[in-house]
């Protein structure tokens, strides 16, 4: 059974505009899948559908065998098991870093203060930010904030991680520190779905690459095949544009 199973998913904004067209793919446990494509291709929308942050009108998505569209599904409970990292970090600016990491551990998982705190500190250690634990998000750089956001998601001990353009809002010199954390995570066997334009990251750790355009999944193939010769014209054009320089 795949960890994430996306089956014939379609989504419309209003009656006219279709953002997702019959998308089908599956992500196995421990697999790292990179989703790329031009802006407006629906890749962010697709990844947000996976933890039901965006509703969709047709098709099914199953995470760990649980159908999202089933009315009896406890969505908050399911979301707690899927980590998500956002383009703009979305740390809670009114809470200290430690509180950002502890809040959901305590309120959702019911962990004690001590338990949540020790998990938080060990994760901050891991992303190299222990000394910033008692600061507020606004006092950290973009790269540091995104590492905190990854730690916050990991604190919930997720079965899979979703990354929605995690490095797009970062200054170039901060991209590496975030990618390093993600590479390490991938090598540890975390199931990851990553929307990104970082083809270096894809080459390094992805098992598969999905290419989307105009709401459709155009290519869905192993990394080496995707970066190798045979592929669709639209993917070729896209790759030549982002790899040109």
């Amino acid at each position: 059974m795949p960890m994430i199973e996306i089956n014939a998913v379609s989504k419309w904004y209003g009656p006219q505009f279709q953002v997702l067209k019959d998308c089908t793919t599956a992500i196995e446990k421990g697999e790292v899948v990179v989703v790329c494509g031009p802006s407006g291709s629906g890749k962010s929308t697709l990844i947000k559908c996976v933890n039901a942050l965006e509703p969709f009108q047709a098709g099914t998505i199953r995470v760990d065998g649980i159908n999202l569209a089933d009315p009896s599904t406890d969505l908050p409970k399911l979301r707690a098991r899927i980590g998500m990292v956002f383009q703009h970090f979305e740390l809670f600016p009114h809470l200290k870093i430690t509180e950002n990491l502890c809040l959901a551990q305590e309120k959702v998982l019911g962990r004690s203060r001590d338990e949540a705190m020790s998990r938080a500190m060990s994760l901050l250690d891991r992303v190299g930010l222990r000394e910033h634990a008692h600061k507020f998000p606004g006092q950290l750089s973009g790269g540091q904030q995104q590492r905190v956001a990854i730690a916050r998601a990991l604190a919930m001990d997720p079965i899979a991680m979703l990354f929605d353009e995690p490095t797009s809002a970062l200054d170039p010199e901060m991209i590496t520190e975030v990618l390093d954390v993600m590479v390490e995570l991938a090598r540890e066997g975390m199931t990851m779905m990553v929307v990104t334009h970082e083809m270096g990251f894809a080459r390094k750790v992805a098992h598969r690459v999905i290419f989307m355009d105009k709401g459709e999944i155009i290519e869905d193939r192993p990394k080496d095949e995707f970066f190798g010769t045979p592929r669709s014209e639209r993917a070729q054009i896209f790759l030549s544009k982002i790899l040109a320089h």
Binding site: I82, M84, F92, M156
Partner: peptide, 8 residues
């Protein structure tokens, strides 16, 4: 969204 994504 971030709150919901954490399971709140």
């Amino acid at each position: 969204s971030a709150g919901y994504a954490l399971g709140l």
